[in-house]
Amino acid sequence: MKCTVCRGPAVIDLRRHNANFCGEHLLKFCRDQVAKAIHDHKMIEPGEKVLVAVSGGKDSLALWDILVELGYQVEGMTIGLGIGEYSTHSTAMTVAFAEDRGLPLHHVDLREDYGYDVPTAARVTRRVPCSACGLSKRHLFDKTALDGGFDVVATGHNLDDEAAVLLGNTLHWQTEYLGRQLPVLPATDGFPRKVKPLVRLSERETAAYCVIRGIDYVVEECPMAEGNRHLRYKEALNLIEAGSPGSKHDFYFGFLARAADRFQPEAAEAKGALGACERCGAPTPDTLCAFCRLVERTAGHDPVPVELIRKPRSRGARAGAGSGKQ
């Protein structure tokens, strides 16, 4: 098998593009796809300051690397979630990546800085771990971006993530979430702009990018996410993709081109009027924002071991949540 571009030995075949690439041209392909996504969806303007949410997994590390390669002004941020060895390993991978390249990294630790962790929050609130995890990440990335004068928060959501969330939101007709499932969420009401520059890349492609670039990432699955609905949607979509390459791309980008607008009114209506949290100032329809309520309920409880938290039964895929991205 030869590289479609240079005819040298290929290392990967991408059937959805009817192309094979050597290492060098796979890297170029990935950078070009990210540049196209940023351009097409007006994600980042030249000179803007970008905060990239980093977990230590393949997508966020590939995203950070590509944004740096493309010349953007990027700083990383990672959150210690307290999910046992998995979190320890993830943080170590992220710190090593940043230190090896001399890149700035912001680090927040839920237990040290706010008095709780994800397993403990799951036990105290009696909700799935992904709920407390997603809420914590969204709040803390927003806060760090606003406090640090960042123009935009970039996350590592890839094509598989977006197609899986879209499948979940469609299966259950979560029209409010469908109206918000966009590659760019503009800055509004005290929220920073959020962008997903990897939406044109599958996770097989981002993983290949990391292997070729020599980026050491966390391969292990989050123990809190094992068996969740989001993973089953991905498996189902990959079965379809195997028989009909390009289906995931057509599903997601067809939605953006032909259907997403139709759900905007419901998303806007559901958002409602927002005031400021009386404790932290974050936008909220209530007196206290959801994050401050979570901290109030869970801080100070003794840590709950990961093993004691049962596997989650997701209650539905939500736009921007439940995919597990930092």
Partner: peptide
């Protein structure tokens, strides 16, 4: 690519649901 008896290969999953 043809894999031989002497090869060691890793099959690495790429699907992730948590981070």
């Amino acid at each position: 690519v043809v894999l031989e008896d002497a090869d060691v290969v890793e099959i690495r999953p790429v699907i992730s649901g948590g981070a």
